[in-house]
Design a protein around this nucleic acid. Structure first.
Lengths: 146, 146
DNA sequence: GTATCTGCAAATTTTTTGCCAGTAG
DNA sequence: CTACTGGCAAAAAATTTGCAGATAC
Protein backbone atom coordinates (compact mmCIF):
# COMPACT_ATOMS: atom_id res chain seq x y z
CA UNK A 1 0.00 0.00 0.00
CA UNK A 2 1.25 3.37 -1.02
CA UNK A 3 0.94 6.74 0.67
CA UNK A 4 -1.94 8.81 -0.70
CA UNK A 5 -1.51 12.42 -1.59
CA UNK A 6 -3.79 13.42 1.31
CA UNK A 7 -1.67 11.44 3.74
CA UNK A 8 1.43 13.04 2.34
CA UNK A 9 -0.03 16.51 2.65
CA UNK A 10 -0.90 15.89 6.27
CA UNK A 11 2.58 14.57 6.97
CA UNK A 12 4.03 17.69 5.39
CA UNK A 13 1.67 20.00 7.31
CA UNK A 14 2.58 18.39 10.60
CA UNK A 15 6.29 18.33 9.92
CA UNK A 16 6.35 21.96 8.86
CA UNK A 17 4.18 23.03 11.79
CA UNK A 18 6.44 21.26 14.27
CA UNK A 19 9.28 23.40 12.99
CA UNK A 20 7.30 26.63 13.01
CA UNK A 21 7.12 26.68 9.23
CA UNK A 22 4.04 27.21 7.11
CA UNK A 23 2.33 24.97 4.64
CA UNK A 24 2.29 26.52 1.18
CA UNK A 25 1.26 25.43 -2.27
CA UNK A 26 4.89 25.64 -3.44
CA UNK A 27 6.25 23.44 -0.66
CA UNK A 28 3.49 20.91 -1.19
CA UNK A 29 4.27 20.76 -4.90
CA UNK A 30 8.00 20.29 -4.27
CA UNK A 31 7.31 17.59 -1.68
CA UNK A 32 4.91 15.81 -4.02
CA UNK A 33 7.41 15.92 -6.86
CA UNK A 34 10.09 14.35 -4.66
CA UNK A 35 7.69 11.71 -3.37
CA UNK A 36 6.71 10.45 -6.81
CA UNK A 37 10.14 10.91 -8.34
CA UNK A 38 12.01 7.71 -9.03
CA UNK A 39 15.22 9.49 -9.90
CA UNK A 40 17.36 11.74 -7.70
CA UNK A 41 16.60 15.18 -9.09
CA UNK A 42 18.74 18.27 -8.79
CA UNK A 43 17.17 21.53 -7.64
CA UNK A 44 16.92 22.48 -11.30
CA UNK A 45 15.13 19.22 -12.11
CA UNK A 46 12.65 19.86 -9.31
CA UNK A 47 12.14 23.39 -10.59
CA UNK A 48 11.35 22.20 -14.12
CA UNK A 49 9.06 19.45 -12.85
CA UNK A 50 7.18 21.53 -10.33
CA UNK A 51 6.65 24.36 -12.77
CA UNK A 52 4.07 22.18 -14.50
CA UNK A 53 1.89 22.27 -11.39
CA UNK A 54 2.83 25.73 -10.15
CA UNK A 55 3.79 27.73 -13.25
CA UNK A 56 4.86 30.84 -11.40
CA UNK A 57 7.29 29.20 -8.98
CA UNK A 58 10.85 30.49 -8.95
CA UNK A 59 14.10 28.56 -8.64
CA UNK A 60 14.90 30.44 -5.44
CA UNK A 61 11.64 29.26 -3.92
CA UNK A 62 12.46 25.71 -4.94
CA UNK A 63 15.78 25.98 -3.09
CA UNK A 64 14.04 27.41 -0.04
CA UNK A 65 11.33 24.74 -0.14
CA UNK A 66 13.88 21.96 -0.46
CA UNK A 67 15.75 23.32 2.52
CA UNK A 68 12.58 23.41 4.60
CA UNK A 69 11.60 19.87 3.58
CA UNK A 70 15.07 18.45 4.20
CA UNK A 71 15.16 20.33 7.51
CA UNK A 72 12.00 18.52 8.57
CA UNK A 73 13.59 15.18 7.73
CA UNK A 74 11.12 14.45 4.94
CA UNK A 75 13.81 14.22 2.28
CA UNK A 76 17.54 13.82 2.02
CA UNK A 77 20.06 16.02 0.32
CA UNK A 78 22.64 13.96 -1.50
CA UNK A 79 25.95 14.85 -3.10
CA UNK A 80 27.50 12.68 -5.71
CA UNK A 81 30.43 14.94 -6.31
CA UNK A 82 29.21 15.98 -9.74
CA UNK A 83 28.68 19.62 -8.98
CA UNK A 84 25.05 19.94 -7.99
CA UNK A 85 23.21 18.52 -5.00
CA UNK A 86 20.48 15.94 -5.49
CA UNK A 87 17.36 15.32 -3.48
CA UNK A 88 15.71 12.08 -2.47
CA UNK A 89 12.20 11.86 -1.05
CA UNK A 90 12.16 8.07 -0.74
CA UNK A 91 11.46 7.28 2.94
CA UNK A 92 12.59 3.66 2.73
CA UNK A 93 16.13 3.01 3.96
CA UNK A 94 18.36 2.48 0.97
CA UNK A 95 21.80 3.18 -0.36
CA UNK A 96 22.88 4.77 -3.59
CA UNK A 97 25.22 3.40 -6.17
CA UNK A 98 26.67 5.59 -8.86
CA UNK A 99 27.74 3.84 -12.03
CA UNK A 100 31.16 4.92 -13.20
CA UNK A 101 30.17 3.96 -16.72
CA UNK A 102 26.91 5.81 -17.25
CA UNK A 103 26.72 8.04 -14.16
CA UNK A 104 23.32 6.60 -13.35
CA UNK A 105 22.29 6.45 -9.70
CA UNK A 106 20.99 3.02 -8.75
CA UNK A 107 18.97 2.50 -5.56
CA UNK A 108 20.09 -0.41 -3.41
CA UNK A 109 17.49 -1.64 -0.95
CA UNK A 110 18.90 -3.68 1.87
CA UNK A 111 17.25 -6.20 4.11
CA UNK A 112 17.79 -4.58 7.51
CA UNK A 113 18.09 -7.97 9.22
CA UNK A 114 21.21 -8.88 7.27
CA UNK A 115 24.66 -7.42 7.68
CA UNK A 116 24.37 -4.26 5.68
CA UNK A 117 27.68 -3.98 3.89
CA UNK A 118 27.89 -7.68 3.20
CA UNK A 119 24.44 -7.89 1.70
CA UNK A 120 24.80 -4.89 -0.52
CA UNK A 121 28.02 -5.75 -2.22
CA UNK A 122 27.16 -8.72 -4.40
CA UNK A 123 23.39 -8.03 -4.25
CA UNK A 124 20.73 -9.03 -6.74
CA UNK A 125 20.97 -5.70 -8.58
CA UNK A 126 23.95 -6.80 -10.62
CA UNK A 127 25.86 -3.77 -9.48
CA UNK A 128 29.60 -4.44 -9.29
CA UNK A 129 31.06 -2.34 -6.51
CA UNK A 130 34.57 -0.97 -6.95
CA UNK A 131 34.55 1.61 -4.21
CA UNK A 132 32.24 3.04 -1.63
CA UNK A 133 31.97 5.99 0.64
CA UNK A 134 30.01 6.12 3.83
CA UNK A 135 28.90 9.30 5.47
CA UNK A 136 27.62 9.18 8.99
CA UNK A 137 25.72 12.03 10.52
CA UNK A 138 25.25 12.58 14.20
CA UNK A 139 27.01 14.09 17.17
CA UNK A 140 30.71 13.84 17.93
CA UNK A 141 31.95 13.06 21.42
CA UNK A 142 32.27 16.73 22.35
CA UNK A 143 28.81 17.69 21.14
CA UNK A 144 27.22 14.61 22.71
CA UNK A 145 28.48 15.34 26.19
CA UNK A 146 27.84 19.07 25.98
CA UNK B 1 56.09 3.11 9.79
CA UNK B 2 54.98 5.99 7.70
CA UNK B 3 55.44 6.72 4.03
CA UNK B 4 58.45 8.96 3.34
CA UNK B 5 58.22 11.92 1.06
CA UNK B 6 60.52 10.16 -1.44
CA UNK B 7 58.23 7.12 -1.48
CA UNK B 8 55.24 9.37 -1.97
CA UNK B 9 56.86 11.21 -4.83
CA UNK B 10 57.63 7.95 -6.58
CA UNK B 11 54.07 6.76 -6.07
CA UNK B 12 52.83 9.99 -7.57
CA UNK B 13 55.26 9.81 -10.50
CA UNK B 14 54.21 6.27 -11.32
CA UNK B 15 50.52 6.94 -10.96
CA UNK B 16 50.66 10.03 -13.14
CA UNK B 17 52.81 8.31 -15.74
CA UNK B 18 50.44 5.37 -15.95
CA UNK B 19 47.72 7.81 -16.90
CA UNK B 20 49.85 9.73 -19.39
CA UNK B 21 50.11 12.70 -17.07
CA UNK B 22 53.27 14.53 -16.12
CA UNK B 23 54.92 15.00 -12.76
CA UNK B 24 55.13 18.67 -11.83
CA UNK B 25 56.14 20.66 -8.81
CA UNK B 26 52.57 21.87 -8.35
CA UNK B 27 51.03 18.40 -8.40
CA UNK B 28 53.67 17.12 -5.99
CA UNK B 29 52.94 19.97 -3.59
CA UNK B 30 49.18 19.36 -3.74
CA UNK B 31 49.68 15.62 -3.22
CA UNK B 32 52.02 16.24 -0.30
CA UNK B 33 49.58 18.65 1.31
CA UNK B 34 46.78 16.08 1.09
CA UNK B 35 49.02 13.33 2.43
CA UNK B 36 49.99 15.18 5.58
CA UNK B 37 46.63 16.86 6.07
CA UNK B 38 44.62 15.50 8.96
CA UNK B 39 41.49 17.42 7.99
CA UNK B 40 39.45 17.17 4.81
CA UNK B 41 40.40 20.35 3.02
CA UNK B 42 38.44 22.15 0.35
CA UNK B 43 40.16 23.19 -2.87
CA UNK B 44 40.51 26.64 -1.34
CA UNK B 45 42.15 25.16 1.78
CA UNK B 46 44.60 23.27 -0.39
CA UNK B 47 45.33 26.43 -2.34
CA UNK B 48 46.12 28.41 0.81
CA UNK B 49 48.24 25.61 2.25
CA UNK B 50 50.18 24.83 -0.91
CA UNK B 51 50.89 28.48 -1.58
CA UNK B 52 53.39 28.35 1.28
CA UNK B 53 55.52 25.88 -0.67
CA UNK B 54 54.73 27.11 -4.17
CA UNK B 55 53.94 30.81 -3.84
CA UNK B 56 53.00 31.35 -7.47
CA UNK B 57 50.44 28.56 -7.75
CA UNK B 58 46.95 29.50 -8.88
CA UNK B 59 43.62 28.20 -7.67
CA UNK B 60 42.84 26.90 -11.14
CA UNK B 61 46.01 24.82 -11.06
CA UNK B 62 45.02 23.45 -7.68
CA UNK B 63 41.70 22.33 -9.15
CA UNK B 64 43.46 20.76 -12.13
CA UNK B 65 46.02 19.04 -9.88
CA UNK B 66 43.34 17.70 -7.59
CA UNK B 67 41.47 16.30 -10.57
CA UNK B 68 44.63 14.56 -11.82
CA UNK B 69 45.42 13.13 -8.39
CA UNK B 70 41.87 11.91 -7.79
CA UNK B 71 41.80 10.50 -11.31
CA UNK B 72 44.86 8.39 -10.45
CA UNK B 73 43.10 7.06 -7.38
CA UNK B 74 45.59 8.68 -4.99
CA UNK B 75 42.93 10.73 -3.25
CA UNK B 76 39.19 10.88 -2.88
CA UNK B 77 36.83 13.70 -3.62
CA UNK B 78 34.17 13.94 -0.95
CA UNK B 79 30.96 15.91 -0.72
CA UNK B 80 29.34 16.65 2.57
CA UNK B 81 26.55 18.69 1.09
CA UNK B 82 27.90 21.94 2.47
CA UNK B 83 28.62 23.60 -0.84
CA UNK B 84 32.22 22.86 -1.64
CA UNK B 85 33.92 19.56 -2.34
CA UNK B 86 36.51 18.20 0.05
CA UNK B 87 39.56 16.10 -0.62
CA UNK B 88 41.01 13.20 1.32
CA UNK B 89 44.47 11.79 0.71
CA UNK B 90 44.33 9.20 3.48
CA UNK B 91 44.92 5.79 1.83
CA UNK B 92 43.60 3.76 4.77
CA UNK B 93 39.99 2.57 4.41
CA UNK B 94 37.83 4.70 6.63
CA UNK B 95 34.46 6.35 6.83
CA UNK B 96 33.55 9.91 7.56
CA UNK B 97 31.22 11.23 10.19
CA UNK B 98 29.95 14.75 10.08
CA UNK B 99 28.89 16.24 13.38
CA UNK B 100 25.55 18.00 13.19
CA UNK B 101 26.58 20.13 16.12
CA UNK B 102 29.95 21.53 15.07
CA UNK B 103 30.15 20.43 11.42
CA UNK B 104 33.46 18.74 12.14
CA UNK B 105 34.37 15.72 10.01
CA UNK B 106 35.47 12.79 12.14
CA UNK B 107 37.38 9.87 10.64
CA UNK B 108 36.07 6.44 11.57
CA UNK B 109 38.54 3.61 11.07
CA UNK B 110 36.97 0.20 10.92
CA UNK B 111 38.45 -3.19 11.50
CA UNK B 112 37.85 -4.83 8.12
CA UNK B 113 37.35 -8.24 9.74
CA UNK B 114 34.30 -7.09 11.63
CA UNK B 115 30.89 -6.36 10.22
CA UNK B 116 31.36 -2.87 8.93
CA UNK B 117 28.10 -1.13 9.75
CA UNK B 118 27.79 -2.83 13.09
CA UNK B 119 31.25 -1.89 14.22
CA UNK B 120 31.05 1.70 13.16
CA UNK B 121 27.86 2.65 14.87
CA UNK B 122 28.72 2.47 18.56
CA UNK B 123 32.50 2.66 17.94
CA UNK B 124 35.19 3.85 20.31
CA UNK B 125 35.15 7.37 18.87
CA UNK B 126 32.18 8.41 20.93
CA UNK B 127 30.37 9.48 17.81
CA UNK B 128 26.59 9.09 18.18
CA UNK B 129 25.16 8.25 14.77
CA UNK B 130 21.73 9.61 13.91
CA UNK B 131 21.81 9.02 10.18
CA UNK B 132 24.13 7.75 7.52
CA UNK B 133 24.50 7.76 3.80
CA UNK B 134 26.38 5.21 1.81
CA UNK B 135 27.57 5.81 -1.69
CA UNK B 136 28.76 2.91 -3.73
CA UNK B 137 30.77 3.38 -6.88
CA UNK B 138 31.18 0.79 -9.56
CA UNK B 139 29.43 -0.56 -12.62
CA UNK B 140 25.72 -1.13 -13.00
CA UNK B 141 24.37 -4.30 -14.56
CA UNK B 142 24.23 -2.76 -18.03
CA UNK B 143 27.75 -1.38 -17.95
CA UNK B 144 29.16 -4.58 -16.44
CA UNK B 145 27.87 -6.79 -19.23
CA UNK B 146 28.71 -4.37 -22.01
C1' DG C 1 -2.61 41.43 12.60
C1' DT C 2 1.85 39.65 12.15
C1' DA C 3 5.43 36.74 11.18
C1' DT C 4 6.52 33.98 7.41
C1' DC C 5 6.75 33.17 2.52
C1' DT C 6 7.21 34.15 -2.55
C1' DG C 7 9.21 35.98 -6.72
C1' DC C 8 12.46 38.78 -8.69
C1' DA C 9 16.94 40.28 -9.55
C1' DA C 10 21.35 40.81 -8.01
C1' DA C 11 25.16 38.94 -5.48
C1' DT C 12 28.11 35.20 -3.87
C1' DT C 13 30.38 31.05 -4.07
C1' DT C 14 32.40 27.27 -6.36
C1' DT C 15 34.34 25.32 -10.28
C1' DT C 16 35.62 25.26 -15.18
C1' DT C 17 37.57 26.99 -19.44
C1' DG C 18 40.43 29.41 -23.18
C1' DC C 19 44.59 30.98 -24.24
C1' DC C 20 49.59 31.50 -24.62
C1' DA C 21 53.91 30.95 -22.78
C1' DG C 22 56.68 27.46 -20.28
C1' DT C 23 58.27 22.78 -19.35
C1' DA C 24 58.56 17.54 -18.83
C1' DG C 25 59.74 13.56 -21.16
C1' DC D 1 60.59 18.49 -30.40
C1' DT D 2 55.83 18.14 -29.02
C1' DA D 3 52.19 17.34 -26.22
C1' DC D 4 50.96 18.39 -21.68
C1' DT D 5 50.87 22.19 -18.00
C1' DG D 6 50.51 26.41 -15.37
C1' DG D 7 48.88 31.04 -14.64
C1' DC D 8 45.75 34.48 -15.66
C1' DA D 9 41.38 36.29 -16.34
C1' DA D 10 36.97 35.52 -17.81
C1' DA D 11 32.98 32.45 -17.88
C1' DA D 12 29.87 29.16 -16.25
C1' DA D 13 27.29 26.79 -12.85
C1' DA D 14 25.16 26.43 -8.39
C1' DT D 15 23.30 28.48 -4.57
C1' DT D 16 22.13 32.34 -1.52
C1' DT D 17 20.38 36.85 -0.32
C1' DG D 18 17.70 41.45 0.06
C1' DC D 19 13.59 43.32 -0.50
C1' DA D 20 8.55 44.52 -1.27
C1' DG D 21 4.27 42.67 -1.80
C1' DA D 22 1.31 38.51 -0.75
C1' DT D 23 -0.30 34.94 2.35
C1' DA D 24 -0.86 31.41 6.21
C1' DC D 25 -2.40 31.07 10.68
Amino acid sequence: MTTSQQDRDQILRDALASRGHRYTEQRAAVFHFLAVSRSHPTAEDVFVGVREDVPGISLATVYKSLEAIVGCGLAHKLSFGDGSARYDGNPDPHYHARCVGCDQIVDIHVDPRRGALESMVPGPTGFRVTDYHIELTGYCADCSSG
